[in-house]
Design a protein around this nucleic acid. Structure first.
Lengths: 200, 200, 200, 200
DNA sequence: GATGAATGAGCGTTCATTCAT
DNA sequence: CATGAATGAACGCTCATTCAT
């Protein structure tokens, strides 16, 4: 008895997700280059050939993995600013960012690695830029709401801090003092500091 | 008649440099993995086999490329702090960093790519860490001399800013507003701001 | 529709056998070193890469070839001594040995070549020694049963004769008078000679 | 001041000998395939290119090495038979053979390895055959002088014994009981045994 | 839809040989 | 005569991709 279209669609969706999920894990753990299609097949329990029904190539799979990751990140950060107080909003974003990096450092490492590699995935650059711009705009909001001068540049600098700290952490997870730096960054972006108390 | 020792040494030095230089360019442009030994040979105009007279392996070549780069960077930054005024010192370091990234963005891109890729070169992580620590210590000096509280964390944050900004620039050279950000960072680390004038 | 497990097993078995067989022929004909993986692929009509699904390396393939050969030899010689009379037993072994060398001289040649080459295959030496010792022990039995003095040394000498003759034959198949030598060896190890009739 | 022709000839001869000697050592120690031309150059202290002035190729060098070895062996064995008594003559040959193998097992191992390898050196087979035949003829003499029946086959068998024993020894130098086997072979070819005393 | 055996281009590397000096 | 840097064909091997079932 043939399956209904819906059943087929579900089957497809499940396989696709399984591959995507498994690839994400392995790419994150071993890096894109060192992860072979066979490894993905073994890890996910599907046949090698099947991957090519869902993704045109290994590179396309990487793209899908990164798309999924970036979408996730975009969504999480979009939901970040619930605080009405702009300084608290800022603090939330900072805290959230450093939590995210701790939760799945491997994925971020993959992202960072691909991001600096020119031309590994055609067209990915643009997407990454879109994400970056979106994040920076998110970041700009609280500065603007707090009437901080030069909100755009402030956002760029905070973005750079977060980026830089996250990357240092990812590279050197055991040693990097993420807690201390988090505290320091929060202090630097506290109401007291930003509104000009004597010491920052 | 055999060549003299000096002729030989010159010949060797020239070939070695040519390979190193060409490899640097290609690694930076296409990434380590996507650059094949054949490509290096073709690009530099030497035979494939010759590379192995000067470098034990493709990996050793990468190491040499990175070592050369890191040594250069370490030296430049070590000579950065000539100003007696700690705030000027800070400004010098910031300016210099952003100049360096503009001067050879390809090399930095390669460096950033390798840095987040675990295990591409055995033992390289340690070297990179040593460099990072050295740079952070350089950065700490002016904060300390300026009697800024929590100099260590301040250095970490400034380091993150520079790292983050440089990486953004490298990824998106044409669009990233490096000038504006430089100015903003300099303002943020000016005497006026750090010693607590009303607005930062 | 995926193949059934049995179909798969058959497919695999056929490929494996084909590679093993082809490798045996080429190794025997050209020697291990001069036989390239490409040659084996071309000769057997399979793709180069496929070999590595069945054998971990070219060396592993050689090992498999030799193991298969040695196992065969060990089994054949183990079944050699069916005669109740020790002298007839001896004669059977001698005849059988010289028959075997005629039946597959190439395989023996490969075996002899590898045997004198130290370190071509790690750990193979021990296996070869085990086989040698086993064969010598086989050889010792009839001497002992015939109450010949110094059976151990007699076995060593007969072993050397067989080895020496086989090797000469293999090197120079067209010219070496294997028949005549076989007859002479049989005479030397006949009951009459061994039990001390006037002439040997 | 130009050198005289004779001086040049001596220079040539010395270089040639040096290469030949060094190659022999390395071929014997590591085997032909595993010895690179560079290794020979380093070992002998001459330039790589120089080898090609004296030998057309690495293979030609091997040929020369083996020629030299075979010639040496032929000469030694030719001088072996000084005893007037044919049985003593036989004993001398046997003893000498087993001494030779102990003196330079590496060289013999090289010889054995090349000998069973088809086509490694073009035309070498014939030379080896010539040597074999010469040695067998040497061996035949005492049998004939002792009026042993079937001297030709007896020589073939003794030749096989020596060959087999030497090879076993070479393969397994530390374990093979060369002394005991030597004694046993000498006993087997003693006057008493050959002329038909009761036990062999 | 799913399987995994099969393919073959391309990789990093070695090394006998050549050649400018 | 002697040197050793330079060459490039060939090696063993990997792995993204295809295809028969």
């Amino acid at each position: 008895m043939p399956r209904t279209d819906q059943q087929l669609a579900e089957l497809r969706e499940e396989s696709r997700t399984r591959i995507l999920q498994g690839a994400m894990e392995l790419f994150a753990r071993y890096g894109y280059t060192k992860t072979s299609v066979r490894m993905i097949a073994d890890h996910t329990g599907i046949a090698q050939g099947l991957m090519y029904r869902y993704f045109a190539s290994k590179e396309a799979l990487l793209r899908a993995v990164l798309d999924s990751f970036m979408q996730q990140v975009a969504q999480i950060l979009a939901e970040a600013g619930t605080a009405s107080d702009p300084f608290e909003h800022l603090a939330q974003i900072i805290r959230l960012s450093f939590e995210l990096i701790q939760q799945q450092p491997d994925s971020w490492q993959l992202f960072y690695a691909i991001r600096v590699q020119p031309d590994v995935v055609a067209g990915l650059h643009e997407e990454i830029n879109i994400l970056s711009v979106a994040l920076m705009q998110q970041l700009e909001i609280p500065f603007r709401r707090a009437s901080i001068a030069n909100a755009h540049n402030e956002a760029a600098i905070l973005f750079a801090i977060i980026d830089g700290v996250c990357q240092q952490y990812v590279i050197n997870r055991t040693i990097y003092p993420l807690q201390a730096v988090t505290t320091a960054v929060l202090a630097k972006y506290s109401r007291a500091t930003l509104t000009g108390a004597t010491s920052q």
